[in-house]
């Protein structure tokens, strides 16, 4: 195909997206579109399955049977969401195993928030409330993204996630209505999870490299800073209901802007964690790699068995 031809195809392609048409896997697409989508969807999928680990950490220690089943179901949902997203990604011509390889080798990224440790029960509440809260803000617009399989996966994910944040907030509520020790546990969790949650929206708009292209392809509807502001504006009143305080001395309602002003984010910490120096990067990756490697003989056995059964059927037919 000549360069001219490709330019034409690209023009038609961009026009389709501008008209809100969906792109399906077998449609022609610019290579950059394919690569960007593989990167973003797989990063999203990796985040779901690495995200199982910090919460999974508390399944055996959940303080009541009701909490235990809710947490199990939530962590299981994350496995499901990872699976939907890997499947969406596979339609772009890459296998789940290749995507795992990228994760295990450190080539692919996942959301940095999951490199923070869950050291108390309140952390399970804080993750549901803050991390899932931030995730929902990021994810809802993706239900309308341009790539069909991604959009469909996100519709399912968002529908299922609706209980996750409520589950987390309810944990926080119970703690805040409990003893002084419990309330302190809740405050401590908010102190540790607040800033990393704000970082979930990514670098400031000035620093963000992908925004413009992502907007065009509807991988993004609002900028990082807009989403972050939305999160802060909706979360601060929720903290007030809990009666615990957001750990930011500069946090103040700005009447003119109609938004909360907030203090500076420690971007140094953000980049350090992204680069692998967070509190649990190594542990998270080791858990994933171990699960995959220890499972290899199981996967092989299932394939060997399936092939033997197929042969048996064939022989019977003959």
């Amino acid at each position: 195909m000549s360069e001219e031809n490709i330019k034409d195809l690209e023009k038609t392609f961009e026009a389709r997206i501008a008209r809100d048409e969906k792109i399906e896997p077998k449609d022609w697409m610019p290579e950059k579109y394919r690569q960007t989508h593989i990167r973003q969807i797989s990063q999203h999928a990796h985040s779901e399955i690495v995200g199982m680990l910090p919460e999974g950490n508390w399944i055996t220690r959940a303080p009541s049977l009701r909490r235990k089943v809710a947490l199990l179901a939530k962590v299981q949902d994350e496995a499901g969401h990872g699976l939907y997203l890997y499947s969406a990604c596979e339609t772009l011509g890459i296998t789940r195993n290749e995507l795992y390889d990228q994760l295990h080798s450190g080539k692919a990224k996942y959301s940095s928030i999951f490199n923070y440790p869950t050291i108390s029960w309140a952390d399970i509440g804080a993750i549901g409330w803050l991390v899932d809260g931030a995730a929902i803000i990021n994810q809802v617009p993706l239900c309308n993204t341009s790539f069909g399989p991604y959009a469909r996966a996100m519709v399912r994910v968002c529908k299922e996630e609706s209980f996750h944040q409520r589950q987390g907030y309810e944990i926080m509520l119970k703690l805040c209505q409990g003893t002084a020790e419990q309330k302190e546990m809740a405050q401590d969790a908010l102190n540790r999870w607040w800033w990393p949650s704000l970082m979930m929206f990514g670098p400031t708009d000035a620093e963000s490299t992908h925004t413009e292209q992502s907007m065009k392809w509807k991988l993004k509807r609002k900028t990082n800073d807009e989403l972050r502001q939305q999160f802060i504006d909706q979360t601060v009143p929720q903290a007030e209901i809990l009666g615990i305080s957001v750990p930011d001395p500069e946090l103040k309602w700005n009447k003119e802007r109609g938004h909360y002003d907030f203090g500076p984010i420690d971007w140094d910490e953000f980049w350090q964690v992204v680069k692998g120096h967070g509190p649990c990067n190594k542990e998270r990756m080791k858990a994933r790699v171990d699960a995959w490697e220890n499972g290899e003989w199981v996967r092989d056995a299932a394939m060997a068995y399936a092939e033997k059964q197929k042969l048996k059927k064939l022989n019977k037919a003959v």
């Binding site: 199982m52 680990l53 399944i59 179901a73 962590v75 299981q76 496995a79 990872g82 699976l83």
Partner: peptide, 18 residues
């Protein structure tokens, strides 16, 4: 419950959690 997130495939993880 100890296994959730550590199974040989995502599919088996989901099944065992069920």
């Amino acid at each position: 419950g100890e296994l959730c997130g550590h199974g040989p495939t995502l599919e088996t993880d989901i099944a065992l959690t069920n």
